[in-house]
């Protein structure tokens, strides 16, 4: 990125985008994260993982959470899913405080966590079965979602016969079959190669556009966050706290061409400065010694 390129401010939005955000904020709040804090008791004393996390997720909104490593992204999503407990604050779903895991908050994990002993169909049927639905009902439900992620040819395959991208599609179908109020995704495409990842992002966008679903998505990939999200919650590390909540100034749905649009780059630059501060400490620099012969330079 050349320095001379004049980028617009990431805060400036077209009227249509401005209007869309206004409509989003009028929708009911699905998830209300109110003053969340979390401290661990480690060997070297008390570690504050999260401090005073506040944000609201509106219905059918797509929210991304990004931050440098160690900022407590995973702790945050685990608390939202009920797999971990906050030391202060509360999580409210549709206005009611929740504690412990439940089918109203579906979760997609980075390492798929499909049940290896169940076929694709049986994996997707797991949630409906746990709700006490009849086998036939669950099966029909599962088939619908398997078809939606384009894996109907594989419904009788076992997870270890599928590729990483296909596994994650099954995991998404399994979560959606439960019809949760919000889908929490913890770096779901982090283990995939770049091509599959781009494909999965497009799939997820299609699902989000066509299904009544609210998504909270954790990633460390800045482009992924801008491409998918309505708003991006940027966390800061030590302790994990909100640095800024950015409204992405691009109209939905996004296309691959958006990756080089000035507004995208402006947002990207802002995220870069928030997550990777421009100044480099002396201890971060590698102690380099010149080990090549004169005249042997690469430049």
């Amino acid at each position: 990125m050349s320095q001379s390129l004049e980028l617009p401010s990431y805060l400036e939005k077209e009227p249509a985008v401005e209007d869309r955000f206004r409509r989003i904020y009028q929708r009911p709040v699905v998830l209300d994260v109110a003053g969340l804090g979390k401290t661990f008791h480690a060997a070297n004393g008390v570690v504050e993982a999260l401090r005073d996390i506040h944000f609201k997720v509106h219905r059918r909104e797509f929210i991304c959470v990004i931050g440098p490593s160690g900022c407590g992204k995973s702790t945050l999503i685990r608390i939202l899913a009920g797999l971990d407990y906050p030391t202060s604050g509360a999580v409210k779903l549709d206005g009611h405080e929740v504690s412990g895991p439940g089918p109203d908050r579906g979760m997609v994990f980075q390492n798929y966590t499909l049940f290896p002993w169940l076929t694709v169909k049986r994996n997707v049927m797991f949630g409906p079965r746990m709700k006490g639905h009849q086998y036939r009902v669950s099966e029909a439900e599962a088939r619908k979602w398997i078809k939606m992620v384009g894996l109907d040819r594989f419904e009788n395959s076992y997870p270890n016969q599928l590729s990483g991208g296909m596994k994650q599609r099954v995991a998404i179908a399994r979560t959606l079959a439960n019809q949760p109020r919000i889908v929490l995704m913890d770096e779901p495409f982090g283990a995939l190669d770049a091509q599959t990842r781009a494909q999965m992002q497009a799939y997820l966008q299609q699902i989000w556009l066509n299904v009544d679903v609210t998504i909270l998505f954790i990633t460390h990939d800045l482009d992924e966050a801008i491409y998918l999200a309505d708003r991006i919650v940027v966390l800061d590390a030590h302790p994990g706290r909100i640095a800024e909540i950015i409204e992405v100034p691009l109209p939905q749905p996004r296309t691959p061409e958006d990756f080089i649009s000035p507004k995208f780059l402006a947002t990207r630059k802002r995220l870069d400065t928030l997550i990777h501060p421009p100044k480099m400490n002396d201890e971060d620099r590698l102690p380099m010694v010149k080990m090549t012969e004169p005249g042997d330079d690469v430049i």
Binding site: P103, R105, G106, M107, F115, K131
Partner: peptide, 29 residues
Amino acid sequence: LDVGLLEAAQTLGASRRRLVINVILPGIL
């Protein structure tokens, strides 16, 4: 047994009894 499987089952609404019968037992078999 991978704890991730138990956590996934919990977010899918499995009760404690269901976790033992439908996840732990087939998982370790």
